[in-house]
Amino acid sequence: MSTQTIERAAERVAQATPSGLSRRIAGLSDGAIAWLFVSPTIVLLLAINIFPLLWTIYLSFTNYRANQPGRAIRWIGTRNYERLLGSEDIWGYMQATAHFVCWTMALQVLLGLGLALLINRNFKGASFWTTVILIPMMLSPAVVGTFWTYLYQPQTGIFSYIVNLFADVGPLNMIGSVELAPWAIVIADTWMWTPYIMLLCLAGLRSIPDYLYEAAEVDRANTWQKFWYITLPRVLPFLMLAVLFRGIENFKMFDMVVELTSGGPGSTTELASINLKREAFEKWRTGYSSAFAIILFVTVFGLGNIYVKALNRVKS
């Protein structure tokens, strides 16, 4: 758009502005007008994000229970934090969460990138298969959790049947076994969200100009060298962004796992967010669960910041 066109458009907007309003705005400085425009957003941000965060921090130092509104709120200092950090159970939930996040990320990156490389070859029917592969991520996590419970059913589930085709292990109790249940939730999440990683990787692959590969051909680079020196560096920022999004989401994972295992057997798959929900809305220990929420927030925020710095370094 040329400068003249912009000026003409500005003139038209000025003419269309009611005279009363234009007089009022005319008296304001540029800074004041800027504040005028951003203030609704700031008010919303304060009301929806900042105030609840500050309120949660306050509650985390109290004995408040949301189901007992008449009860006096007592300041108990850092007692909630001491209980949390000294609890073996909490560390168990954090370990279960770390296991889930690390393994889902590793598998989804490998499979997602592999699928993206495959789809990027533009074979006949590539569009059809792309659509088919994307279906799992379009489903609701609760639905995915529910139908994987059927797939994992030891006697009639297809998962146990397939495993028994290769190894005669009998009915495979994926959800009820302490050893297998953590992998059961990793497999279900990987099935659901690998397409998302694939999609972002595919965007990265499609953005690589052909001339880079042509130049590599001229230099007699082999397939591995082309992947290592051209494809991977170009896709890496996309891949890291996908990992950031999925990592944060999986740290907060709740619905799919609740449907699949309810956190069991015992507390084997009780992720931090599941325990947080139980503390906050089933036990109604609002002060205690606020402290837990703050610890989780600081953890995700801290790890996220470190990761974003690494991402920026990769980009630059």
């Binding site: 069991g264 057997p265 015992g266 507390s267 139980r278 089933e282 036990k283």
Partner: peptide, 20 residues
């Protein structure tokens, strides 16, 4: 009661099903 119940759910499931 809800708090008491959830504690028992955890402890007995840990022992009976998860063999802890």
């Amino acid at each position: 009661y809800a708090e008491l119940l959830l504690a028992m759910q955890k402890r007995v499931h840990d022992y009976v099903v998860a063999d802890k």
